[in-house]
Amino acid sequence: MSAKARILDKLRHSLAGTEPLPDDFDETLVTQPWRYPPEQRIARLRELMEAVRTEIHLTSQTQWPDLLATLLDEKQLTRLLIAPETDHGRQLSEHWQRRSDAPALHAYDRPVEEWKHELFHDTPASLTGTVGAIAATGSLILCPDRHEPRLMSLVPPVHFALLRASTIHDNLYEAQRALNWRAGMPTNALLISGPSKTADIEQVLAYGAHGPKDLVVLILEDA
């Protein structure tokens, strides 16, 4: 008999004669206390994310590339990793082609194995999109894919994320439903609620543990 068969056998034997407990999931408990009027969603998200040192800027669908250039300049970042096949990646490259002072753009356009060293040692910042956010907990939702791979939001020390205001959900329960995750999860789905942090030494909060030291969210309001 295999380990699997023996384990399942023992468990089934222990359950003999019992009925499964009913499913009494009460969705009001995870929705009602966590609902916000539409005009307060951004404020709530902002409050929670700023409390864990996230930088948040309100901008628009047309103005964000210029704002991003300014922010990169202020932070003295001269290179930015982008996903060139995404809408925002295209928009940024086209926009910045018209500017002579824009920082250099680098594309995550091949498997990580082919440029791992450069990613780890010479990629100071990245820009990714998001599929939404959660006001209740102050979280961005990312679903990395072939165009915008997983490590983009993890390895570079500064992570810029674009968020459309219309995609901010009240709570995780409603976000899961809206994204229809039950019918099929993405390969990898992430909730990101600030820059990487730790309190493992004396409970002292320190940012930039293993992931980005800075998280900058650009909220596009006209969406």
Partner: peptide, 23 residues
């Protein structure tokens, strides 16, 4: 920890798929 949520919630459902560049 008294946090509304942790910094990362990582939901993994598959290994690297054809055409994906990491994972």
């Amino acid at each position: 920890l008294g946090q509304p949520i942790t910094t990362y919630i990582n939901m993994i459902s598959r290994p690297r798929q054809a055409g994906e560049r990491d994972g």
